[in-house]
């Protein structure tokens, strides 16, 4: 569909120690490398192979993705917010591109 673009939904504020829900989505074709085009040639694999989320530099969520993951991979996870900080997200593409996004969560 649309071009490759990351999106994140995270609360702007939280209280210290609160468990919040983080939703992420990246529009990506996730071409598995198993398919053939109409001339019979293999369509080369191109997927997001790694996703990480860090909070003030500390890892909160990470995973490897494999070719069977559907297009537009969506991740939702929960985390405890200890203090005000920056949530940084990183999606690594097979072609070496790295897509990033950032959200600041303020602890009032």
């Amino acid at each position: 569909m649309a071009s490759i673009k990351p999106r994140v939904k995270a609360p702007k504020t939280a209280s210290a120690g609160e468990v919040v829900s983080i939703k992420t989505l990246i529009s990506h074709p996730m071409e598995s490398g198993q398919r053939k085009d109409k001339d019979g040639a293999t369509i080369p694999r191109q997927i997001i192979n790694k996703f990480t989320a860090t909070f003030n530099g500390a890892m909160v969520f990470a995973c490897d993705l494999e070719p069977s993951v559907s297009a537009n991979p969506y991740f939702e996870f929960q985390m405890t917010v200890p203090e005000t900080g920056v949530l940084a997200f990183e999606w690594v593409d097979d072609d070496g591109s790295i897509y990033t996004d950032e959200k600041t969560i303020t602890v009032a």
Binding site: M1, A2, R7, K23, S27, N72
Partner: peptide, 17 residues
């Protein structure tokens, strides 16, 4: 229930562009 979860919103974004 949440537009973020609704996969149709990729199409809506394209339409807005």
């Amino acid at each position: 229930l949440d537009d973020f979860d609704n996969p149709a919103f990729l199409a809506v974004e394209l339409g807005r562009e």
